[in-house]
Amino acid sequence: MAEEKKGCASASTCSKESCAGCASANKKNPFEVETNPNARIKHVIGIVSGKGGVGKSFVTSSLASMMAKAGYKVGILDADITGPSIPKMFGVHGPAIGDDNGTFPIEAEDGTKIMSINLLLEDEEQPVIWRGPVIAGAVKQFWTDVQWGDVDYLFVDMPPGTGDVPLTVFQSLPVDGIVIVTSPQELVQMIVKKAYNMAGMMDVPVLGVVENYSYVKCPNCDEEIHIYGDSHIEDVAKELGISVLGKLPMDQKFAKAADAGEIYAVENDYLTEAKTVLEKL
């Protein structure tokens, strides 16, 4: 009887025949929630970082823009509820509207579909002062209540760390894999491992790691200047058995495009390995 209960919480009240048509029968994660009926999402990719300030949202927007340029239908679920930056980077503003079937995401100029708390607030500069469970609930609603339509890759921009929101996303959404974003400092080795270990505990594949702020190119001689010290990302990736998906330099054109709401207009050739990995999913 105990073994029977592993397969279904109500196993004692159902038969093999009745379980065959049960919605939970083929669900490997009992915490997973259903997406909006008007959403057809092929792949969900989480973008995570063990600490803040490493440019995670920039990497999220860069990956989304790259896949959109390649002809894929792309969306970004901005799960960084208290620090949303995706709408600003893509130049989109609310209010998002909806109907009886849910809310519509707002499309950027390149076609990227975006849902963020900033698209629902009357004032974009209004702070979101919510406790963890409320924030986690909002993230779930971005999955269940948003009419995403057809999306090949939905990138989930998560807040830093291993708290409520990453846990909610890993448990509630069918995440195909995560990309860990980091920077060159030696401290990063520990931080990357925290994100990697959390993914392992939640049985979520790690697609690879992206190093941001890797270097600055001298405008006169093209020499790479490592402001934050020598990179250790290859050593960490080798130890963990994951791929380095890209090393992004500090470049004024990236910052200017993000501030202007035109991040999609920047050609970012540093993430080609990430594109290869995503297309193999």
Rank of each mutant, 00 (worst) to 15 (best):
K113A: 08
K113W: 12
K113G: 02
K113P: 12
K113N: 09
I114F: 10
I114E: 10
I114K: 11
M115G: 02
M115K: 04
S116F: 08
S116A: 09
S116W: 08
S116D: 07
I117Q: 09
I117C: 05
I117N: 09
I117A: 10
N118K: 14
N118D: 14
L119E: 15
L119W: 11
L119V: 13
L120Q: 13
L120K: 09
L120T: 10
L120F: 15
L121R: 15
L121E: 13
E122F: 06
E122Q: 15
E122I: 01
D123R: 10
D123H: 13
D123F: 14
D123W: 12
D123Q: 15
E124R: 15
E124W: 08
E124I: 12
E124C: 03
E124V: 12
E125R: 14
E125D: 15
E125W: 06
Q126W: 04
Q126Y: 08
Q126P: 04
Q126V: 06
Q126I: 10
Q126T: 14
P127E: 11
P127S: 08
P127N: 13
V128D: 09
V128W: 02
V128A: 10
I129F: 12
W130G: 12
W130P: 14
R131H: 12
R131E: 12
R131A: 11
R131M: 05
G132T: 11
G132H: 08
P133T: 07
P133L: 07
P133W: 12
P133R: 11
V134K: 15
V134E: 11
V134M: 15
V134I: 15
I135W: 02
A136P: 00
A136R: 11
A136M: 11
A136D: 07
G137M: 09
G137I: 04
A138F: 05
A138E: 04
A138W: 02
A138C: 04
V139M: 07
V139L: 11
K140I: 10
K140D: 09
K140T: 11
Q141M: 05
F142A: 08
F142S: 06
F142Y: 07
F142N: 03
W143G: 00
W143T: 01
W143H: 13
W143F: 15
W143K: 14
T144W: 06
T144D: 02
T144L: 02
T144G: 03
T144K: 13
D145V: 01
D145N: 13
V146E: 04
V146D: 06
V146F: 05
Q147S: 09
Q147V: 03
Q147P: 01
Q147W: 01
W148Q: 04
W148F: 09
W148N: 11
G149M: 04
G149C: 07
G149R: 02
G149I: 02
G149A: 02
D150C: 01
D150L: 00
D150S: 08
V151T: 09
V151Q: 02
V151W: 08
V151E: 07
D152Q: 05
D152M: 03
Y153T: 00
Y153D: 00
Y153N: 00
Y153Q: 00
F155S: 01
F155K: 01
F155A: 01
V156A: 10
V156P: 06
V156L: 09
D157L: 03
D157N: 00
D157T: 04
D157I: 00
D157F: 02
D157K: 05
M158I: 07
M158E: 03
P159K: 07
P159E: 09
P159R: 03
P159M: 05
